[in-house]
Design a protein around this nucleic acid. Structure first.
Length: 260
DNA sequence: ATTTTCAAT
């Protein structure tokens, strides 16, 4: 069964599928849906793509749609959160768009993706931009997102152990993601990489990260490994577990930075 | 190109 309702994933699945430094030919999607001002999820679970059949997103969208048509909302807004091991492809973006357009109830949609899925494909970029224009909060996963995903979908008592280069790769993913999605946004011309949260990335390392990602999307072994740089980022997050669910600031907000 | 990029060798 590619889709499982009310089932956590194992620790092995979590680390195996959501690693941002190892490529995979599978996609895992952990999802939750809740009615706002309620704490408990109304619908949750996880799904793998069905090989040769359909992407994980489609399975989950079907399940959520089924729920929405069968249940009269006791709220004015749904909140949906997805943890995806790959960012959605162009067609899945279209399907998410259709899903949002069909809903009678406002939907707050959060997508956190571990790895970029063919970001160099224009159509994939367009799909992601469309989602963002529709108000979907979409970002690449970073340390705190991994903590949250583990807490919510694996085990709240297990401590997240970061793998080597998680920080470096997530920062690289974040930068390339912003760069690509900002292409058609004139307001951001000179501020592609500004952030709200005092990002530890130094200006000098920008091109390193960018080329690193553009040349090798998911390098299994980083030939340019620089231990110095890794150490530089190793302490930027507190590893201790915090109370989830807890919303970190989303990237979508940071585009409203001052321009002067 | 409703798609050779979420496998099959």
């Amino acid at each position: 069964m590619p889709l499982r309702l009310n089932k956590e994933i194992s620790e092995d699945e979590f680390y195996g599928q959501f690693s941002n430094v190892k490529a995979s030919h599978q996609t895992l999607l952990c999802f939750s849906l809740k009615e706002d001002d309620k704490t408990l999820w109304k619908l949750w679970g996880h799904a793998y793509n069905n090989p040769g059949q359909c992407h994980a997103e489609i399975l989950v969208l079907r399940e959520m749609e089924e729920y929405l048509v069968a249940n009269i909302p006791n709220t004015t807004k749904y909140s949906i959160t997805w943890f995806l091991s790959y960012s959605p492809c162009r067609w899945c973006c279209d399907e998410i768009t259709n899903f949002l357009m069909k809903s009678q109830t406002k939907i707050e949609f959060n997508i956190k993706a571990a790895r970029p899925y063919y970001f160099d494909d224009d159509e994939n970029q367009k799909g992601l931009k469309m989602l963002r224009r529709l108000g979907v909060l979409i970002k690449m996963m970073e340390y705190s997102d991994y903590e949250e995903c583990l807490y919510l979908f694996v085990d709240p008592c297990t401590k997240f152990i970061a793998w080597p280069d998680l920080e470096v790769q997530s920062i690289a993913n974040k930068m390339i993601f912003h760069h690509l999605l900002a292409q058609d946004d004139n307001r951001l011309d000179n501020h592609l990489f500004t952030t709200d949260d005092s990002s530890p990335v130094h200006a000098g390392s920008t091109s390193d990260f960018e080329s690193h990602v553009l040349i090798n999307k998911f390098p299994p072994e980083d030939p340019n490994k620089t231990p110095d740089k890794k150490d530089e980022f190793s302490d930027i997050r507190t590893p201790q577990k915090t109370c989830f669910p807890q919303r970190t600031r989303e990237f979508g907000k940071e585009v409203k930075r001052k321009l002067f």
